[in-house]
Simulated assay, not measured.
Amino acid sequence: MVRIGAVVLNVSDRHRAASFWSQALGYAPAANPDFLVPAEDGAARLHLDETDRTHLDLWVDDAEEQDAEVERLVALGARQVEWDYPDDADFVVLADPDGNLFCVIDKGA
């Protein structure tokens, strides 16, 4: 089942954003300083990025589920986006019917 794993925010100053959002949401810094994690299990983490667009990362458990969810989301009206993927990509970039980008990420990869 697809779930929101992370909200990626485009920020101009990752340190300032981390300070603000950790206090606003009660999130804690992760081992990777680009991420803030919630105190409770199951909530989406926050990814602070100075170069990427704001978008959702939807997580699935394995490659088979990723393929099925991409197919399902395309059937609902999403479209696959041309993207320059790295060789070891664990994500597929889609756009919703309004053109908003989001990723379906294989967390098992």
Rank of each mutant, 00 (worst) to 15 (best):
40 E>D: 05
21 W>Q: 05
6 A>F: 13
89 A>N: 04
88 D>N: 12
29 P>A: 12
38 P>K: 15
97 P>C: 13
76 L>W: 10
99 G>P: 05
36 L>V: 01
33 P>F: 04
1 M>S: 15
94 L>P: 00
104 V>R: 13
91 F>V: 02
86 P>M: 11
65 E>I: 05
82 E>R: 14
73 L>F: 15
41 D>P: 09
85 Y>R: 11
73 L>G: 00
76 L>D: 04
107 K>A: 15
89 A>I: 06
49 D>G: 00
43 A>T: 05
105 I>T: 01
56 L>Y: 10
56 L>D: 05
35 F>C: 02
108 G>A: 09
52 D>V: 03
68 A>L: 13
1 M>H: 10
5 G>F: 08
9 L>G: 06
49 D>C: 04
26 G>C: 12
28 A>Q: 12
70 V>P: 06
97 P>E: 07
15 H>L: 09
24 A>C: 05
88 D>F: 05
53 R>P: 03
92 V>N: 01
11 V>W: 03
104 V>E: 00
71 E>Q: 11
95 A>H: 15
56 L>K: 14
12 S>F: 00
90 D>Q: 13
58 L>I: 06
17 A>H: 08
46 L>D: 02
1 M>L: 10
56 L>A: 12
72 R>N: 09
99 G>C: 11
101 L>K: 11
4 I>L: 15
77 G>V: 01
91 F>D: 05
21 W>Y: 14
5 G>W: 07
16 R>A: 11
19 S>K: 11
30 A>E: 07
71 E>F: 05
23 Q>S: 07
42 G>H: 13
40 E>N: 03
85 Y>M: 07
75 A>C: 06
93 V>M: 12
45 R>Y: 07
46 L>P: 00
96 D>Y: 14
22 S>E: 00
53 R>T: 05
56 L>S: 03
49 D>R: 12
26 G>V: 08
23 Q>P: 01
95 A>Q: 14
81 V>L: 11
46 L>H: 01
28 A>D: 14
97 P>V: 06
84 D>Q: 13
46 L>S: 02
24 A>P: 02
109 A>D: 01
64 E>L: 09
85 Y>H: 08
105 I>F: 07
57 D>E: 05
72 R>W: 08
2 V>Q: 08
10 N>M: 11
19 S>P: 01
85 Y>V: 02
42 G>I: 11
58 L>Y: 09
34 D>M: 08
70 V>C: 09
5 G>Q: 10
78 A>G: 08
58 L>V: 03
55 H>L: 11
9 L>H: 04
88 D>K: 10
62 D>M: 09
87 D>W: 14
15 H>A: 14
28 A>G: 07
54 T>V: 01
21 W>V: 02
67 D>Y: 09
53 R>W: 10
106 D>G: 02
92 V>C: 00
68 A>D: 00
54 T>S: 14
65 E>R: 09
39 A>Q: 13
16 R>V: 04
71 E>Y: 05
20 F>L: 04
21 W>G: 10
79 R>A: 14
51 T>A: 12
41 D>S: 15
47 H>R: 13
102 F>Y: 12
24 A>F: 13
99 G>F: 10
